[in-house]
Design a binder for these strands. Structure first.
Lengths: 405, 405
DNA sequence: CGGTTTAGTTTGCCGGATGAATTTATCCCG
DNA sequence: CGGGATAAATTCATCCGGCAAACTAAACCG
């Protein structure tokens, strides 16, 4: 008997799954709602029977994923609805980040509130990976232990890195701007020196730009679709479709910085990549600023009306616009969000980027592209990491509750 | 402003849906299997109870979507399994195509057999849209009426066009190489002069490259992921993920021909697009062949060892490699399939494309990219269109059967 | 204070998946 | 050639979860 091939978890519908799935639908409906909804509203909007929703909601309340608010003061006739909202401080996700200039942790609960946060600024270019990760673990431990002592259940931890991570569990392949290569990040963080959370709950690892884009998608409610550019020291990016980041086969999608827009510039086609033309170093150099300068120096020069700085940024914006047009032509996104460096430079790059998109994207006459600045706040990748951890609970609360028992 | 997205039918699980969904799972399992499977195998591979599968299969047989084959000669003990296979000649999809050099129709049934086919070669550049579509309707009518008279039920019709189609139902926005703009294709084909099929079953319209990629995905069993390049007169493309074409928001993804790889070449960045650098006209011109020449002339020149032809193709291959590297960096695909012109030139472009991919795609050291020629045969977009029509039956047979009643 | 309206709960029903038992059909061995 | 052994397919009782309708709860209105 030839054993059946390990088929993917095919889409068969079982009744047990049905309950679990609807539990997730109900929870998502409550968490994603812009304002508290009642059981009846939820039933109407999801197309479920009121009785069914009642059962689901009771389950969610018992699991402390949802709480009932005080009945709203309504002016209408009829029994007042009981507003439902995500529980606060009961379940949280942990987002960690190691980047070129800082490392830190942020903890967010189902309601989207930041329960704890700690960031240390430091220049980590070329720093030893093991040392940095030990430092991160030491930084995370007190934050997380304190919350746990307060009764917060942690849904998971996610580490954002400015590099290429193999799957969400695998090693970090390469992080050029940190100078790291083939680092077993999860092993280092789960080691004996690590706090209990991290060894009990092995962190998942993700690309900084992808996780920042997730935070951005969350900040814009309503399942937006856009291409996200994260200009840090390097240039990362991500594709968001209907509110979900598009991971590609290995989670290596959205490497916008490596798009080549000028294939015949130097001896190597890579000399014409977006990062080579519009990365922070390239802009500073073109603006005549020292290599050790920061973005602030460039912004100062722009404010002062420095012509070289303006030309440098204009040139970068042109490359950025062409690269983003390439993205739009390939994945058909309708909006472009500029984060990181380019978010700060937004006013200086918007027009050029928008013009290139209008000119080069074939569908722009019928569906004009929007260019907007990121609005996810500071350290969006930490937020995105925390949200990614929480999403495990949101997509299948029943499954997660079983693991908690 | 396009109408707001029809809010996705929230994925609540209902019991009625459960049956329908599992019916689809069973049908897909039978159709996609490389060789006939039995009810028991199906139950094992999908993780359903044998009793459940029996019920589903009986339903499918009654609906004439599946047929039982004669019990196989087995050498084992036990009751011999009844092999199940997709029914032949009972349900079929119609794929139509209008392209620069030809127009035609192909009809394919659930078993993947071509039931009928008719192609007319002609140069349609600049031809009047209404005239061409009337001609297509006239060409399709006898083919389709004959099949219907023979008892074949038609699942739907899909028209492939070398241009930008708004949604699957909307107008053709632009087809540069045909010289068409804003043509109400569906209306023209559903008009009074059209055969009964087309007015009863308004055709869906798709991009030629996307549909060709669908055929290619079908030809490679097992849900492959790849970027497809369709070099016709223009250069189209598509992204295939896990066997499904990735449509993007409007179905406008994969416009690989419009990727700019040389942003500073001419006065307009568009002068550095892949199509401008590696389109058929550009290659012929660079090879010193007359503009009226066909690809055959270029192939002859290559066979004769003509240096200009070789240089022209090498230059095109370089641009193609860079453009495909951009695609891979953005969507993280592991394979590149060259179709159309580039399929015929495969031997002459493979090495350069593979080299550029290895050099420029950031993840190539850990996941080398494959470059392979298309194997979907001639006129793949017609095949893809027929398959697209059939997929309506495959994904939700219960729903389709209800419409048939 | 009774009628109206809306929210939420209780209850009986029904469809569909399930596993165990049963039937069917073949091979194998004495 | 006949009786296990074995595997496929079907039958049947059970269970689970969503559903509609009836019912209760809590407000407003005149």
């Amino acid at each position: 008997m030839p054993t059946p091939e390990p088929r993917d978890p095919s889409r068969v519908a079982r009744q047990a799954q049905m309950r679990d799935q609807n539990l997730g639908v109900a929870l998502r409906g409550i968490v994603d709602a812009p304002e508290p909804v009642s059981r009846a509203q939820l039933a109407a909007s999801e197309g479920l029977a009121r009785a069914t929703v009642s059962g689901l909601v009771d389950h969610l309340i018992e699991a402390r994923l949802v709480r009932e608010l005080d009945p709203a003061q309504t002016q209408r006739a009829g029994r007042p609805a009981v507003p439902l909202a995500p529980a606060r401080g009961t379940v949280a996700g942990v987002g960690m980040e190691v980047n070129v200039d800082y490392l830190g942790v942020r903890v967010i609960d189902l309601a989207g509130d930041v329960l704890a946060e700690h960031v240390e600024l430091d220049d980590l270019r070329g720093a030893d990976a093991a040392t940095v990760l030990d430092r991160l673990a030491a930084l995370v431990a007190p934050v997380v232990d304190g919350l746990r002592a307060g009764g917060v259940r942690l849904a998971g931890t996610t580490l954002a890195l400015p590099g290429l991570v193999d799957r969400v569990t695998g090693p970090l392949r390469v992080a050029p701007n940190l100078g790291w290569r083939d680092v077993d990040v999860v092993g280092a963080l789960s080691g004996p020196a690590a706090p209990t959370v991290l060894s009990a709950l092995p962190p998942r690892v993700g690309n900084e730009a992808n996780l920042a884009a997730r935070a951005e998608a969350h900040a814009r409610r309503g399942s937006p679709s856009f291409a996200y550019v994260s200009g840090e020291v390097g240039i990362g990016g991500a594709i968001v479709l209907d509110g979900d980041i598009f991971p590609g086969r290995h989670g290596w999608s959205g490497e916008i910085g490596h798009i080549v827009v000028d294939a015949f510039r130097g001896p190597h086609p890579a000399d014409g990549s977006l990062e080579a033309l519009a990365g922070q170093d390239a802009m500073l150099r073109a603006a005549g600023l020292p290599a050790t300068a920061r973005l602030d120096a460039l912004l100062d020069a722009l404010r002062a009306g420095d012509a070289r700085a303006e030309a440098a940024v204009a040139q970068a914006a042109r490359a950025l616009g062409v690269a983003l047009a390439n993205v739009a032509n390939v994945v058909d996104v309708g909006e472009v969000v500029l984060g990181g460096t380019f978010g700060q430079l937004f006013g200086h790059v918007h027009d050029e980027v928008a013009a290139r998109l209008q000119e080069l994207v074939i569908f722009s006459p019928w569906s004009p592209l929007l260019v907007s600045p990121a609005r996810a706040g500071q350290y969006p990748a930490m937020t995105g990491g925390a949200l990614a951890a929480l999403s495990r609970v949101l997509t299948d609360p029943a499954e997660w509750l079983r693991t908690q028992a």
